[in-house]
Design a protein around this nucleic acid. Structure first.
Lengths: 135, 135
DNA sequence: CATACTGTAATAAATAAGGTTACAATATTA
DNA sequence: TAATATTGTAACCTTATTTATTACAGTATG
């Protein structure tokens, strides 16, 4: 579940912040990320569905920020790329006849929710503008 | 990098807490986790290398806590199972000729370090004893 | 109407994670 | 001391996930 999505989306958004009011093509963005343009477009679809960017088809098309970088905070980016940070579960369902196995996943859920709230709280304080600033 | 290791190790430690001063076999533990005993033993090796448990070979052997559950905190468990929580990197090295690509991984490292410090700080306050208490 | 794009599906390749088998080594106890 | 129950560990297999590629339809521009 944890993958490069958060990093890739943040990279895309940083580029868009650096070139405001310009449509950047997926090829250009892919060049900075060193990634296949189709993968970039897939991430852009997600950013678009979440109203962080707008994009234009056709010649001279591309993608730009849908709002100012000062209005986007990193918790929004995390939310749409990873939803929730997981610290992992055992893959199989634990034995429900064991008092520990029965409750373990619930306990982990609660713990992970607590940790996620903390992470989100921290990321709410960082805007895309701030993050992009020292590039 | 993120996997079930943290959850599995925590499950094992919780069982050991519930049966203190008893050597539990990897078969017994595997039954609660619904996991192959060899995988359990692999995790136990890690717990052993990090002085959280001791184990005894041979008949009637098994594993028990190396210290009291009140002396083990969850950040120690996280540290030995995941080392550091990653929120992901783009798999390929970004383009070093792009000012954004060049610095991105450094920036992410810094961000992730901050977040990890927060997570660790939170988990330092939870002992294995507390975690095990309401099973 | 040629061109340069996005959007998207299908599929392939690579990587990672989890599971299994096998067996040597060790300690217990009858 | 022999049978047994256990850990320790390596090698390998399988499945799942992630990343990459190909292909092409649709769209806006000039």
């Amino acid at each position: 579940m944890i993958s490069g999505k958060f990093a890739i989306s943040l990279h895309i958004l940083t580029l868009l912040t650096k070139f405001p009011n310009e449509y950047l093509s997926s090829d250009f963005i892919a060049g900075s990320l060193n990634l296949h343009p189709v993968l970039v477009r897939k991430e852009i679809v997600n950013l678009k569905n979440n109203q962080l960017v707008i994009s234009k088809e056709g010649k001279n098309g591309g993608t730009m920020l849908a709002k100012s970088a000062s209005q986007i905070t990193l918790d929004q980016v995390l939310k749409i790329t990873l939803e929730k940070v997981s610290f992992g579960y055992s893959k199989n369902h634990p034995n429900p006849n064991c008092p520990v196995g029965e409750k373990m996943n619930n306990k982990l859920d609660m713990l992970y929710t607590t940790l996620n709230n903390q992470i989100t709280g921290q990321l709410m304080n960082i805007t895309l503008e701030q993050f992009s600033n020292d590039f």
